[in-house]
């Protein structure tokens, strides 16, 4: 079971590096039709337990051309996502298919999620481009050690 050790602080939270790719089904389709596969994008991400679905900044989508299949609600106070008053201040956002991996320093130890549905939120203003939420953490054990300023993610 790989262990990913992370530094944390109160101000910036729990940060890690994540690789965003096209999802596996798209990858297989592109290969079968001999089309170019978009290069993965490595981004700075925050690990968070406050929401159900992981999300990425729209700029990441533009860099990798992810398939778009749905829209959803997003409650993201502090971002500049346009809110809909009739939805109680939440916003509508686009939802994409993707693959992602939490990058581990050791070879072959990344946490790979070949198929995941990601929402878009304007995150760049916070110095991150992705937030990893409970949908990914559902397969992990997270130990958050505030006094030592460290956390461990086991998967």
């Amino acid at each position: 079971m790989p262990l990913l050790n992370l530094a944390l602080d109160v101000r910036s939270g729990l940060r890690t590096r994540v690789r965003i790719t096209v999802n596996r089904a798209t990858l297989l389709k592109l290969r079968a039709t001999r089309q170019a596969v978009p290069q993965p994008v490595i981004v700075d991400a925050m690990i968070d337990t406050g929401a159900e679905r992981s999300c990425i900044d729209p700029a990441v989508v533009r860099r990798i051309a992810l398939p778009l299949h749905a829209f959803g609600f997003a409650s993201a106070p502090g971002t500049n996502a346009p809110v809909i008053p009739a939805l109680g201040g939440t916003a509508v956002n686009a939802i994409y298919q993707a693959g992602l991996a939490l990058i581990h320093p050791a070879p072959h130890s990344d946490l790979v999620v070949p198929e995941i549905v990601l929402e878009t939120l304007p995150l760049a203003q916070f110095g991150i481009e992705a937030v990893i939420e409970r949908d990914v953490l559902a397969s992990c054990v997270l130990v958050y050690n505030g006094p030592t300023g460290s956390a461990t993610l086991a998967y």
């Binding site: 089904a25 798209t26 389709k29 299949h69 749905a70 939805l87 298919q97």
Partner: peptide, 29 residues
């Protein structure tokens, strides 16, 4: 949604389709 997306890829050759949750709040808004 995963099942819906998988089915969409099987039925829609160009891969452009909506796999959308049925949610009454959208109708309200």
């Amino acid at each position: 949604q995963k099942d819906a997306i998988q089915y969409g890829h099987e039925r829609v050759p160009d891969g452009q389709f909506l796999a959308q949750e049925i949610d009454a709040r959208f109708l309200t808004a």
